[in-house]
Design a protein around this nucleic acid. Structure first.
Length: 486
RNA sequence: GGGGCUGUAGUGUAGCCUGGCCUAGCAUUUGAGGUUUGGGACCUUAAGACCUGGGUUCGAAUCCCGGCAGCCCCA
């Protein structure tokens, strides 16, 4: 079979660089992460994807646990009158809300929103639960699904109508308590994304225009995909007393006065799986960072009949040995597939390391270890295997983050006016500019370009920009990143 | 929000323009059997599809309309 035919029929048929959208579609399907369903914009998260999501959950849960954030579960449905209480909030979400209007053939007295986010339903409960300063802080989160009926083209993981996330909703007696949480939550997101997902993003504060509907301010980490588009990753919203006033969340303070609480909201979602696929993958398929890969190592025995028993025995032994050391190991002993076929399959699925074990290795008591990130092969003595695997996995993890960091760095272009910004963004770059941070200026920018928005503003530069805004006549106040978003 | 393209076995496709020779071809896949196994092996054999609902017509995978779904471009 010719090389060309091989790739056409079995693997991913397009180059990531040349046709990112098609590549992405094939990559997640061929890695067995997700599949389309008859409901537009809603995909199946298959076990392989769900396991990765579970890794993200595991790490997040550990950290939230330490921060004393309790896990709860609130209803999927939100009565219309609750959703309407906070004006900005409802305005932001109402176009995308899915409604339940009937039970069987009976029309409901009040329609129920399928939650696009849970502020409304949670804060109604909070208002009943919080009476005294002794009830605060109240910190809860819930892992659930939400529905936002987007009308843009859905893209699995990156922009889907239903997705999974954790939404945290914390309540404090004073502003300081709430504001202090900003750093710990954002640090947690950055830690998980960088050190587990190996993804480097832009951390900063959202503009007035782009902040969460109902919040005082929003912080986010933004990720650039290979097609130049930006996906917002995890976030943190300081709500001040906006929701407290709308949902009447009050308490009697030590001074015996009735006060409104201060609140935060924060989240990380399955969208990160999309970023993960898009940023790390190559023409062969996925590349998963070892720390979140469902399998870190796949052992493939190169089967020959006369060695079969021995090979299988050794394969099992290796697996046990590595599992004892805490690695996640898969063995592929299928006899009806040739080694080459298996290599390709596990490459599409992005398993960080492959161990080949055949008669040659058996004889010398070695194995051949192959890295997914750069394809490098080496022989490793079985005696030293555990140590070597650890080294390699650590290095892959490190290299992936480094690569992601470099790609991000190289994509940022400082611009001085709208024209330069447009040129940069059209070339897939992220624009970086001195900015006035005004709503009208951002609206104007969106109108005059093909929908370029601010992404966020690095916090250490807020208030430090000097001179004129790059896009209007006002004084610059901040530096900000600009691009087109998912 | 606007426009374009597409939908044929699990997957990728041929056929569509110009309706009939389609009992829908090919490859891969899947089941059985055999021979194999170091980068997607081979042989035999079996299985598997025209997105959906209308319409036009003697006759529709093919033409028309609606729906559903996917992709792309623009805002």
């Amino acid at each position: 079979m010719s090389e060309k035919k091989k790739t056409e029929e079995k693997g991913i048929t397009v180059k990531k660089e040349k046709n990112f959208n098609e590549w992405y579609t094939q990559a997640f399907q061929k890695a067995d992460l997700a599949d389309y369903t008859l409901v537009s914009g809603c995909v199946v998260f298959k076990p392989y994807a769900h396991t990765i999501w579970d890794k993200i959950r595991e790490e997040t849960k550990k950290r939230l646990n330490k921060m004393d954030v309790g896990e709860a579960y609130f209803p999927l449905f939100i009565p219309e009158k609750l959703l309407e209480k906070e004006a900005e909030h409802v305005e932001g979400f109402s176009p995308e809300v899915a409604w339940v209007e009937k039970a069987g053939n009976t029309k409901l007295g009040e329609r129920l929103a399928v939650r696009p986010t849970s502020e409304a339903i949670m804060y109604d409960s909070y208002s009943k639960w919080i009476r005294s300063h002794r009830d605060l802080p109240l910190k809860m989160c819930q892992w659930n699904n939400v529905v936002r009926w987007e009308f843009k083209n859905p893209v699995p993981f990156l922009r889907s109508r239903e997705f999974l996330w954790v939404e945290g909703h914390t309540v404090f007696a004073d502003e300081k308590g709430a504001l202090d949480e900003d750093k710990s939550i954002m640090d947690m997101w950055q830690d998980i994304c960088e050190n587990y997902l190996a993804l480097k993003g832009l951390r900063g504060k959202k503009s007035e225009n782009e902040k969460f509907a109902g919040a005082v301010f929003t912080k986010s980490i933004e990720y650039r995909l290979p097609n130049g588009k930006i996906a917002q990753g995890p976030d943190f919203h300081y709500d001040g007393q906006n929701f407290a006033k709308a949902y009447s969340i009050k308490f009697i303070d030590e001074d015996e006065k009735e006060k409104f609480v201060f609140q935060n909201t924060w989240a990380i979602s399955t969208r990160m799986l999309g970023v993960l696929i898009a940023v790390h993958g190559d023409d062969q398929g996925l590349i998963l960072p070892p720390k979140i890969a469902p399998y870190q190592v796949v052992i493939i025995p190169i089967i020959f009949d006369k060695h079969k028993k021995e090979l299988f025995k050794e394969t099992d032994k290796l697996k046990q040995k590595l599992e004892k050391k805490g690695f996640r190991v898969k063995t592929d002993k299928r006899e009806n597939y040739k080694p080459g076929w298996k290599f390709n399959q596990w490459e599409m699925k992005g398993v960080p390391l492959r161990i080949e074990l055949g008669p040659r290795e058996l004889e010398k008591k070695i194995v051949t270890v192959v890295r997914r990130d750069n394809g490098k092969k080496e022989n490793v003595n079985i005696k030293n295997l555990g140590k070597k695997i650890k080294e390699l996995l650590d290095d892959i993890q490190k290299q992936l983050l480094k690569r992601s960091e470099e790609k991000l760095k190289n994509s940022i272009k400082e611009v001085k006016n709208i024209k330069e910004l447009e040129n940069a963004v059209n070339k897939g770059k992220i624009g970086y500019a001195k900015w006035c941070n005004n709503v009208e200026c951002e609206e104007n920018l969106k109108d005059k370009t093909t929908g370029i928005k601010s992404l966020n503003m690095p916090e250490d530069k807020i208030g430090k920009a000097k001179g004129k805004c790059a896009f209007c006549d006002k004084e610059a106040k901040v530096y900000a990143y600009f691009g087109k978003t998912y």
